[in-house]
Simulated scan of single mutants.
Amino acid sequence: MNNTFVTLFWRRRLLTQAVARLEGLGFRVVHLAAGKWTTEQDMHRAIAAALHFPEYYGNNLDALNDCLGDVACYGGYDDAVEGAGLVLSFTDYDRFAAACPKAAQAVLDIIADEARRAAVLQRRFFVLVHSNNPDIRFEPVGAMPVMWNSDEWADSNRG
């Protein structure tokens, strides 16, 4: 997670360990089951509910960018304690990426952009992305590549 705001995981065990370490450091982790998202609207509903977006949330990518910016940079819409920072943990993201490839890429790009903005304000925000597909690839996000975690970086470690 040192090199990018969006980090891929194939082995759930490694994702679980990373989440536990982050929670131990005081990060607030929000878990999202992306494998249940078969449409872009499913994704919008799940993220909006998990992060307590306002009722006027527009359920589109521009609105997601705006509301994630509020969450990442200013603490968001709920009274949950943020602690050391905020982490989104997506599981089964490959299923959403197969169903809605453009939206899946755009979500990661939005998160990377907002995470960079948050960092400028000395706030921590990033996403851990689990995929059942060890060969999944994404275009660079936030002008940064989407990279595998350090334990699974080499292709041979995912086979």
Rank of each mutant, 00 (worst) to 15 (best):
S89F: 04
D92G: 00
A33E: 15
F5I: 02
L32K: 00
D42N: 11
V87F: 09
A112Q: 05
D135N: 13
Y93Q: 02
R124V: 07
I47L: 11
N133C: 11
Y74N: 11
C73D: 11
A34I: 02
S150Y: 14
L64H: 03
A80H: 12
A48M: 10
N149L: 08
V141N: 00
H31D: 14
A115G: 14
A98S: 15
N133P: 01
G69T: 09
R124I: 09
A46M: 11
G69D: 12
D135Q: 15
R117N: 11
M144P: 01
T39S: 15
E152M: 07
V19K: 05
A119T: 09
F53C: 05
R137L: 14
S89C: 14
G85V: 05
E23M: 12
M147C: 11
T16A: 14
K102N: 12
G142S: 11
E152I: 05
L25S: 13
E82S: 05
A104F: 06
A34N: 03
L8G: 00
Q105V: 09
L22I: 08
L8P: 03
G26E: 13
S156C: 13
L61N: 06
F96T: 00
A50W: 07
A84W: 10
A34M: 07
R45L: 14
R11S: 07
T16I: 13
D113V: 08
G35Y: 04
E40P: 02
I110P: 01
L15R: 01
F5K: 01
V29N: 01
L32A: 06
A98F: 14
R11Y: 13
T38K: 09
D109C: 07
D135V: 09
R137T: 14
M147R: 07
L51Q: 02
Q105Y: 15
W153M: 10
R11F: 13
D94V: 00
A46F: 09
T91W: 03
L32E: 03
H130L: 09
A118R: 01
G24C: 09
P134L: 12
F9H: 04
V71M: 04
